[in-house]
Design a protein around this nucleic acid. Sequence first.
RNA 1: UGGGCUGUAGUAUAAUGGUAGUACAGCGGGUUCUGGUUCCGUAUGUGGGGGUUCGACUCCUCCCAGCCCAACCA
Length: 561
Amino acid sequence: MNDKTKEGLEKSSNFIKEIVELDLENGKHGGKVHTRFPPEPNGYLHIGHAKAICIDFGIAKDYQGQCNLRFDDTNPIQEDIEYVESIQEDIKWLGFDWEDRMYYASDYFEKLYAYAVELIKMGKAYVDDLTPEEIREYRGEIKVPGKNSPYRDRSVEENLDLFERMRAGEFEDGSKTLRSKIDMSSGNMNMRDPIIYRIKRAHHHRTGDKWCIYPMYDFTHCLSDMLEGITHSLCTLEFEDHRPLYDWYLDNLKTPCHPQQIEFARLNVTYTLTSKRKLQKLVNDGIVAGWDDPRMPTISGLRRRGFTSGSIKDFCDRVGVAKAASVVDIALLNFCLREELNKTANRVMVVLDPLKVVIDNYPEDKVEWFDAENNPEDENGGTRKVPFTKEFYIEREDFREEANRKYFRMKLGHEVRIKHAYYVKAESVVKDDAGNIMEVHCTYDPASRGGWTDDGRKVKGTLHWVSAAHAVPAEVRLYDNLFTEENPGKSDKEISEILNPNSVEVIEALAEPSLKELKPETSVQFLRKGYFITDRYDHSAEKLVFNRTVGLRDSFAKKVK
RNA sequence: UGGGCUGUAGUAUAAUGGUAGUACAGCGGGUUCUGGUUCCGUAUGUGGGGGUUCGACUCCUCCCAGCCCAACCA
């Protein structure tokens, strides 16, 4: 990022900052800023959460405040310890720190119960015996008011007794609920006597079997925020309709502080899904290998694909914060990554589709080791040695028997540079019976040693290559979008219909020998082929496995027709 | 009986009554031992109609379009 851009981003404000700054000016919330990131541990974090994390932690940091991590674990059947661990790992990897403030909504179960009792005592909550089906019927429809439950007017004493017995486990799952007494005719469906507690005998990953009743999100969230002294409770747009309820609980319970809920648009990215539920389905259906499959938009998937935390944060900054529903082009994410990797990733030579080249006038057994620059963008990047021999491989697409002037790779009778080595001229080809080119025979100019001459000769094309005698087998995996629809989350079609059948392509390639030294999870740029990350070493096949992180921007592809 | 929200280049986001700016994507070109990088240049925008005003993306009004809400999910 250049300084001008950076300055622009730092200066850019958004509506959340404006609210916070106004509150600070007015001394609201005691002049403090305290936010929270509140995931439900029911799946892995994805790129959409990255935006929320950047906003939640970012706002706190910008105003010298704090941000808590809180697991919103009120629905035990969805949740699992695996997810609470991965969530922590991913937030840390992104570079954010909740310090000693990691909480669970389940920490507050006892307090929440007491608040519910409080509501009952005020006559603002009642135990309802309606079945789930009946509750739905009584709720009415969007344009039709609901009607009161026949149990709505039970006495405080009866409600207190019933609620206590709900907790004690005297009633069947689903047979009773505790509901807020608000307004069954409200235009806002959330205000039509929303449920506070349901009976659900499920093992909770933290509280075990202690509870058989669990509080609902709306009741839990505002009170958890309040208990933690949160000042600004940032969430996504779909909770706008919940804000009146958020405020209702806090107002009626006369809590010592009242956090402000502020909503922003959730992140959508072209060709990707940002819905935990749908990602869960991809995992369950075996469409991907797991939550960290390199094609997944999860933080762990992106990490394995080779995305850096810096590029993800940069992306979130550039996407901005607003209330208009939007779909951001995946090209921006890729740009952020390339911008970083261009500066940091060493260049290496790997041939993905080999074509043999023989230098007829080069000695049979000679090996020359040339110094190759690791990264032209990094002065301190150093060099490595690459071996040059009579026979080597180039990219099959880098040779044509005949081509126009616009094609400046290898063609018969023309000189090209073999990067770091020599100028060579293609003289003839060897074909098989079917007419396929098997070998290209060339001559080299000894005076061009090192890939340069002093006579001012112009050589436009420079090719990457790998010595035939030293080539190291490598498996490279090229990834593409998982979906063919630009906005798969909004598509009317079934997931199976919009899956990209070519989302991963596995290629056996040949690499320069220095790659044998590469450690796992190192990002490199394969010259002209994009950025790759070492995934692992396959010992049984004695080869390296690479994931392609992102391709190079290749505006030339159209021109080289 | 419906309620809530949102509309600024292709995309995303600034401009709070005073020159519509930035980034990505696009297009054209220079440099380059990567057709990468980099540098220079360039086209494209305030959903629509009225109104207020010297002046409107901004204020008023009507219309249009899109998104969210009817789990004992979050």
